[in-house]
Write a protein that binds this DNA or RNA. Structure first.
Length: 454
RNA sequence: GUAUCUGUAGUUCAGCGGUUAGAGCACCGGAUUGUGGUUCCGGUUGUCGUGAGUUCGAAUCUCACCAGGUACCCCA
């Protein structure tokens, strides 16, 4: 086939849209039940807004948009060529691209909050369901265009917000009937660990290495750390952290002694303890303190959270955390926010794999009127109008084709009821209703039709 | 960036050196002019990813290129 959708992007068929909307509707209704307000932001942002917020890897994965028109003045061409020749792609790109597609919804939201600070009420609780784009190589559970479903609370330091977001996560996955584990950590603890072994500047290296613990094991992590310039002494002092085990309480008590001399670490542990305690009061029992959880995004400063499906091999399906300084970058200081993001496409893949989509979401039309000809279908139009005003979706088959074809249409469209109204029925004011699931049919009076479907 | 697998009908795939390249599904028609989903019969569908090489002979073997998937990295 010659013309295809761009690699990593997809068309969605009607059935897929019905399933996707089931996910979006579930998340939206939970968000609304907590009083979150919806916003949208543009697909593209200035690169100055996006660059430098996601870490080195993130910058590489930004889709950049070529400036329109005379994008490169001839006098600049030689310096552009020079940058290209030296493989300084970002520098070269900045000369011909000023815009890029958004990489997530959080950074544009921070820009939004700064721009509209006088028009919104703080603490501001917003939700946003839109696509984001990443120039990644696609594979299972990884797309170049995918939907994030974000909820953030900005303008409040309270840890109640963390708890509310965890409640939302729990509620959404309950409603979707998907078993998950919520992994929780705190950047302050990670920063304290880095500080205690004397490598404050290497938080990223430490977190990335710790994050790989379950993948490459203790030896692998230690090897990686020594490649990153950590001495054997550093690694030895880190070992109790790398080998931490047990329940949430046991892990916390191990850490308490480890970070007791570090103010930030103590604070992080207190925050973590508070959130875990409150989770217990609201009945969330699948939260796990996971010291290996790091998250690549630069802007997180406090709680960080990630959700994994228990019964499917899939990357994280929800992520989030607290960011104390994100709006500061755009010129609004001392506004802290915390947010989460559901990855709708990965959740879709999980539900599909476990066959957890409800059957009834396939039904778009409840009743099909079989078309027997001009006179008969005219009567059907009348009855269809009545059904619709009673809020029952229905349609009249447009051609008086063979019955087999019309019935097949109802079957393929998952229409649960078919109405037959032919010559006989017209003459005695009746109508035949066939249940497509059971195959049973009944004959009723035409004026009883609305009542029948109520 | 690294590794690995796969490109054959609308689709899922079989054929893996030897006549004119097949099957299921889908689609169309019929058995059945007022009954779908189950059954039976018939029909349509191809630059075998592209190019070169090996060979008497290539969908099949080799190489290059193009396209797609998967794993690592990272992430939702």
């Amino acid at each position: 086939m010659e013309y295809k959708a761009v690699k990593g992007t997809r068309d969605f068929l009607p059935l897929q849209m019905q399933k996707r909307n089931y996910i979006f509707d579930t998340i939206t209704s939970v968000y609304k039940s907590h009083g979150f307000l919806q916003i949208e932001t543009p697909a593209m942002e200035n690169l100055s807004t996006l660059m430098g917020k996601y870490g080195e890897e993130g910058d590489k994965l930004l889709f950049k948009i070529l400036d329109s028109g005379m994008f490169l003045r001839s006098e600049k061409f030689s310096s552009f060529e020079q940058e290209i020749n030296q493989s300084r792609i970002n520098k070269a790109a900045s000369m011909i691209c000023e815009k890029g597609l958004r990489y997530d919804l959080t950074v544009p939201f921070a820009r939004f909050v700064v721009n509209h600070q006088n028009d919104i009420v703080f603490p501001f609780k917003r939700y946003q369901i839109q696509p984001v784009w990443r120039a990644d190589k696609p594979q299972k559970g990884r797309y170049r265009e995918f939907y994030q479903c974000d909820a953030d609370i900005i303008g409040s330091n309270s840890l109640m917000n963390e708890v509310e977001l965890l409640e939302i996560i729990s509620e959404v996955f309950n409603r979707l009937r998907l078993n998950v584990t919520i992994k929780l950590n705190n950047r302050k603890i990670l920063a304290a660990i880095a500080s205690i072994i004397g490598h404050e500047d290497k938080i990223t290296e430490i977190t990335v290495a710790i994050d790989k613990l379950d993948k490459i094991g203790l030896n692998g992590v230690e090897q990686e750390l020594s490649q990153d310039g950590f001495t054997n002494d550093d690694i030895a002092s880190l070992r109790p952290i790398l080998q931490i085990k047990g329940s949430n309480e046991e892990k916390i008590s191990t850490l308490k002694t480890f970070v007791s001399t570090n103010e930030q670490g103590v604070k992080g542990l207190e925050e973590l303890q508070y959130v875990l305690d409150k989770c217990k009061t609201v009945g969330i029992d699948n939260v796990e303190f996971d010291i290996t959880l790091a998250r690549g995004l630069n802007y997180y400063t406090g709680a960080i959270v990630e959700v994994k499906a228990d019964d499917v091999a899939m990357g994280s399906i929800t992520g989030g955390g607290r960011y104390d300084n994100l709006t500061g970058i755009f010129g609004l200081k001392d506004v802290s926010g915390v947010g989460i993001s559901f990855g709708a496409d990965r959740i879709y893949d999980c539900l599909e794999e476990l066959d957890l989509f409800p059957e009834d979401i396939k039904t778009a039309t409840n009743v099909l009127f079989i078309n027997f000809g001009e006179k008969e279908s005219e009567k059907c139009l009348e009855l269809a109008k009545n059904l619709r005003s009673a809020n029952i979706s229905c349609e009249v088959y447009p051609d008086s084709s063979k019955m087999q074809k019309q019935m097949k249409y109802a079957n393929n469209r998952n229409i649960p009821f078919v109405c037959l109204l032919g010559e006989n029925e017209i003459s005695n004011n009746t109508i035949v209703i066939k249940n497509m699931l059971s195959g049973e049919q009944t004959t009723i009076n035409q004026h009883e039709l609305c009542q029948y479907f109520k």
